[in-house]
């Protein structure tokens, strides 16, 4: 299953890649593969913007506007301001 096309904020600069494979190791949707000792993006639409690759890329070759893809969290952030975050701590019991 894939979500909306051409919407993810994933950016990758192959020139900075050191081929450490971390992105392949952490991506839950196999967005990255190693080709000629460097990472390459296979299918951007598979990305769910979890941010694992960008956080763990020591070379700083990956950028993504990471956050929760959760309607409740985003509606709450529209109403209350701030970054979308699910209300898991508040004991609402209605979240991931």
């Amino acid at each position: 299953m894939k979500y909306l096309a051409d919407i993810v904020t994933l950016e990758y600069n192959a020139e900075l890649c050191t081929g450490c494979r971390r992105c392949v190791e952490v991506c839950p949707h196999q967005v990255f593969v190693i080709e000629n000792k460097r990472a390459a993006i296979t299918d951007r639409d598979r990305c769910m913007e979890c941010g694992a690759c960008a956080l763990n890329c020591e070379a700083g070759a990956i950028m993504v506007d990471a956050g929760v893809g959760c309607a409740t969290a985003i509606i709450n952030s529209i109403i209350g301001g701030g970054e979308p975050s699910c209300g898991c701590d508040s004991g609402s019991g209605s979240c991931c």
């Binding site: 299953m1 894939k2 979500y3 909306l4 919407i7 993810v8 904020t9 839950p28 949707h29 598979r46 990305c47 769910m48 913007e49 979890c50 506007d65 990471a66 956050g67 929760v68 893809g69 959760c70 309607a71 409740t72 969290a73 985003i74 509606i75 529209i78 979308p84 699910c86 979240c95 991931c96």
Partner: peptide, 20 residues
């Protein structure tokens, strides 16, 4: 149905924002 985006394993923030 849109609320279920919070439980799925493949929906990203940008997409949900656009839908909303």
């Amino acid at each position: 149905a849109l609320q279920f985006t919070g439980s799925t394993t493949f929906t990203g923030m940008s997409g949900v924002r656009k839908e909303l």
